[in-house]
Simulated assay, not measured.
Amino acid sequence: MFADDDQPKPKRLHEIGCDLTFLSAGELEERIAVLHDEIARLEADKTSKTSSRSVAESLFKSK
């Protein structure tokens, strides 16, 4: 009966466009790794969706 809005939202490790001035080289490396992981996740999902679409298109092509 409790709304999910009542829960604190986890802090993002990195926000696009944020100020990088006070971050150490180690912190930057950590953020780069997180962003690489996210890019890989996005590319995998894109590949999955485009391959599904290709299969669907091939089923509906006229012969």
Rank of each mutant, 00 (worst) to 15 (best):
G26K: 04
T47Q: 10
G26R: 03
V34Q: 05
L23Q: 05
E15C: 05
D37N: 08
S52E: 14
A56W: 15
S48F: 13
R12N: 08
E57L: 15
K46W: 12
H36S: 08
V55G: 02
H14C: 09
E38N: 12
R41T: 10
D19A: 15
V55M: 05
D19F: 06
L42G: 06
E27G: 02
G17H: 06
H36V: 10
E27Y: 03
G17P: 03
R31M: 14
D45P: 01
C18H: 04
S54W: 04
S48K: 14
S52F: 04
S54F: 04
A25Y: 01
G26I: 03
S48V: 01
R41I: 04
L20E: 10
D45A: 12
L23G: 02
L20W: 05
K11Q: 13
K49D: 09
S48T: 07
P10W: 12
S24H: 04
L23H: 07
H36A: 07
L35K: 14
S51G: 00
V55R: 08
E29T: 07
A44D: 10
C18F: 05
L42I: 12
S24Y: 06
V55A: 11
E29K: 15
S51H: 05
I39Y: 14
K49S: 08
E30V: 01
R12S: 09
S58Q: 13
G17D: 10
R41K: 13
A56C: 02
I39G: 07
I39K: 15
I39V: 09
A25C: 09
H36F: 04
K46G: 00
L35I: 15
V55S: 10
G26Q: 07
G17L: 04
G17F: 04
L23W: 06
L35Q: 14
S58E: 14
R12A: 14
C18I: 06
L23A: 07
V34C: 07
R12G: 00
S54D: 14
R53N: 09
T50Q: 15
R12Q: 15
D37P: 00
K11Y: 08
V34W: 02
E30S: 01
D19S: 15
F22A: 08
F22L: 09
T21R: 14
G26E: 11
L35Y: 08
S48G: 07
E27T: 03
S24T: 15
L23S: 05
L23Y: 12
T50C: 04
H36W: 08
S24N: 03
V55H: 06
P10R: 14
R12W: 15
R41D: 10
I39D: 11
T21N: 11
S51L: 11
E57V: 15
A25E: 11
A56H: 10
E43I: 04
E30F: 00
R12I: 08
K11M: 13
I16Q: 09
L42C: 11
K46L: 14
R31D: 03
I16N: 04
L35H: 06
A33G: 02
C18P: 01
C18R: 13
I32P: 00
L20R: 06
R41A: 15
P10L: 09
E27K: 11
D37L: 08
A40W: 09
K49Q: 13
L23K: 09
G17S: 11
V34K: 05
L42Q: 13
K49C: 07
E57C: 02
P10T: 04
L13R: 13
R53A: 01
E57Q: 13
F22Y: 07
F22R: 11
